[in-house]
Amino acid sequence: MGSEFIVFLAVAIVAIGAAVGMALSRNALYSAMFLILNFACVAVLYLLLNAPFLAVAQVTVYTGAIMVLFVFVIMVLGAEKLPAGESRKEMAWQRPLALGLGVLLLIQAAYVVFTRVVSSSATKLIDSSPLAIGKALFGPYLFPFEVASILLLAAMVGAVVLTRKE
């Protein structure tokens, strides 16, 4: 229980709080803010987990690009809140059932973690510098890397086509 664990605990509590806040907030814009907070916490956890490159990427890609896009769309559409009209009758059972299933899923995961996960761990830290990651990306992961670029291109084209005015 070193200082590291105390940091983890603090960050984890903030992250959970942010997640719950996102899930419960009525206003989509608040939700987005909570989510940004959550992502920032996760970035800190990445640092604790010896993944500095991913921590930076998390901040730039998720908080910097993806969430900005979310906020932008919410504001442009003015879709912070849905009209007050209540949930449909035939969907009444949806909420409790979803909640129950979520809890069940969590219990299962915890059960697996405590009973099945091998409790050995690597002795030494791996080299996760940007150099090492770059070498892996352009080495054994070159093909997925190229595929990812095509995926991004396709997404770009798709987004342009979908939002084009008739």
């Binding site: 987990l49 010896n50 993944a51 490159f53 991913l54 990427a57 998390q58 890609v61 998720y62 690009a65 993806i66 896009l69 979310f70 769309v73 761990s121 690597a122 002795t123 030494k124 830290l125 791996i126 080299d127 996760s128 090492a132 990651i133 892996a136 990306l137 992961y141 997925p144 990812a148 995926l151 991004l152 396709a154 997404a155 770009m156 798709g158 987004a159 342009v160 979908l162 939002t163």
Partner: peptide, 30 residues
């Protein structure tokens, strides 16, 4: 990735981020 001392987990995250970015772009366009 940390537990097993392997870099592959981190690379997976990298690709998940890429997919997430693409998904958000198309999803928000939709």
């Amino acid at each position: 990735a940390k537990q097993w001392g392997q870099l592959d987990g981190q690379l997976f995250v990298f690709f998940v981020m890429t997919v997430a970015a693409a998904e958000v772009a198309v999803g928000l366009a939709l």
